[in-house]
C-alpha cells in the first residue's frame, strides 16, 4: 500500500496539477486557488486514501471535483450564465455569422487537447527523474532560466548542469517514446 507524503506534495505535484487546471479554468490565480484547495482537501481526507491509485491520480480526482464546483459557483450568479453576442464595435458591418465563425485553418480544439495531454505525459515522465534533476531540467527548459542563474542557485558548475540536463533529456526521450508514441 502506498503511503501519503503531504510534505512533498507541492514540490512533486503542483506543476502537474497546475497544467491540468490552467487549460480548464484559463486563469492563473483561480488555478492556484483550486490547487491549494485540492491539497487541503487531500490532507483532510488522507485517511480515506486506500492506496488503490497513485497519489497523483488520487489528487487529480479531487481536483476534478474542485473545478466542477468552481464552475457551479460562478454560474449560480444570476445572469452570468447568459451569453451575449453582438458586434464588436458599432462600425463593423458585413456578414455577422461569417465573422463569428471559427477559422477552420486555425489550430483546432483537437490539436490543443492533444498538446495538453502531451504536456501531462511529459510531466508524468519527469516524475521518474530524481527530484533535483527534474527541478533543474524544468528551470532550464520550461522556465527558460539562464545557465548561470541556475548554477548560482544550486551551487554547481556549468558542466555539472549540462550533465544533469543530458541525463534528464535521455530519460525523458526514452520515457516519452514508450508512453506517448506507442
Amino acid at each position: 500500500m502506498e503511503i501519503l507524503n503531504p510534505e512533498i506534495w507541492v514540490d512533486k505535484y503542483a506543476d502537474y496539477l497546475y497544467n491540468y487546471t490552467i487549460v480548464r479554468v484559463n486563469d492563473p490565480i483561480v488555478a492556484q486557488d483550486l490547487i491549494s484547495e485540492t491539497f487541503l482537501a487531500g490532507l483532510k481526507s488522507k485517511d480515506n486514501f486506500k492506496g488503490e491509485a497513485t497519489e497523483r491520480t488520487w489528487l487529480i480526482s479531487i481536483l476534478k471535483r474542485k473545478i466542477i464546483d468552481h464552475y457551479r459557483k460562478i454560474n449560480s450568479k444570476k445572469g452570468k450564465a447568459e451569453v451575449h453576442i453582438s458586434y464588436k464595435n458599432e462600425d463593423s458591418e458585413g456578414d455577422w455569422l461569417e465573422e463569428n465563425a471559427a477559422d477552420p485553418f486555425d489550430k483546432t480544439a483537437e490539436d490543443q487537447m492533444e498538446n495538453t495531454e502531451l504536456g501531462l505525459a511529459i510531466l508524468a515522465c519527469l516524475d521518474k527523474l530524481p527530484e533535483k534533476q527534474a527541478t533543474i531540467f524544468k528551470l532550464k527548459t520550461v522556465a527558460n532560466y539562464d545557465t548561470e542563474a541556475i548554477c548560482k542557485e544550486y551551487n554547481i558548475t556549468p558542466s555539472n548542469l549540462w550533465v544533469i540536463i543530458h541525463r534528464a533529456r535521455k530519460t525523458l526521450a526514452e520515457c516519452l517514446e514508450k508512453n506517448w508514441f506507442n
Binding site: 507541492v10 506543476d15 497544467n19 492556484q32 491549494s36 498538446n115 504536456g119 511529459i122 526521450a173
Partner: peptide, 28 residues
C-alpha cells in the same frame, strides 16, 4: 533530442515559480 525539444515546445508547459509554490505551502 530535437524531437524532444519540439514536443516540449508544442506542449506549452507551464510551471509555478518557487515563490508561487511557497505561497501554496504557506497556505496549507
Amino acid at each position: 533530442n530535437a524531437a524532444l525539444t519540439k514536443n516540449i515546445k508544442a506542449a506549452n508547459l507551464k510551471t509555478l515559480t518557487a515563490t508561487e509554490k511557497q505561497q501554496i505551502k504557506n497556505r496549507l
